[in-house]
Amino acid sequence: MSQAQDPTSPPLHSVSVAGAVVREDGRLLAIRRADNGNWELPGGVLELNETPEAGAAREVLEETGIQVEVDELTGVYKNTTRGIVALVFRCKPSGGTERTSDESTAVAWLTPDEITARMPEVYATRLLDALDDNGPHVRSHDGKQFVTAG
């Protein structure tokens, strides 16, 4: 019996955090992931001993070399296939220099149009939602496309 079918077992989810880093010129920070070559926003698993905001700042720094000031939560995104809940925070760069890491093969400041062209919709939306002041947004997807509530 799977976790989803067993009412006595709590569902297992992973919580990740990510920083949608917006520069003054409107460009957004993105990485090309080392493991799959996809362009995404910097982020990763939230550690047990840290706040979501601290986790987002840590992940951005680890993956890009950019220090950030975390502003606000802009979205909550659930990958229904993998059981990952991602909290995305709008951030401002506050220092550091762009560099790659073990987790990234490229770091770039992209325009919204470049983000739409380079990223799958479910990941591009996380960055584009950070530009929208009508959040936070709550969205679910299966890893490839958004799913409706139901």
Rank of each mutant, 00 (worst) to 15 (best):
P112V: 00
V60D: 00
A18C: 04
I84E: 12
P136C: 04
T81F: 09
N49Q: 10
S104T: 10
T81V: 08
A149C: 07
G26T: 11
L87W: 06
S140L: 14
D25K: 04
A86R: 13
I84V: 15
G26D: 12
S16I: 00
R27P: 01
E47N: 07
P136K: 04
T116S: 14
C91G: 05
V122R: 06
G44W: 02
V68A: 00
P93R: 04
A20E: 09
T80W: 02
G135L: 05
P112H: 01
G37E: 11
P10L: 14
A117D: 14
T125V: 13
I84N: 07
H137S: 12
T100L: 06
E69Q: 12
L73P: 02
E62K: 11
L61T: 09
D129Y: 10
R99C: 04
K78F: 07
S140E: 15
E98G: 12
A57K: 01
L61F: 12
T64R: 02
I66C: 00
G65M: 04
L131I: 09
V22W: 02
E53G: 01
T81M: 07
T111D: 05
L61G: 06
F146Y: 10
T8K: 13
P11V: 06
L128I: 12
D129W: 09
Q5E: 14
L12W: 09
N134G: 14
M119G: 00
G44D: 05
E72L: 12
Y77N: 00
Q67V: 09
T74F: 00
E53M: 08
K144P: 03
A18S: 14
D129N: 15
N49I: 03
I66E: 01
S101D: 07
V88W: 00
M1C: 10
T100I: 15
G55K: 01
P120D: 14
P112I: 01
Y123K: 09
S140V: 12
A34L: 07
R23D: 13
E121S: 12
D35S: 14
Y77H: 04
A86L: 08
S140K: 14
R32Q: 15
P11I: 05
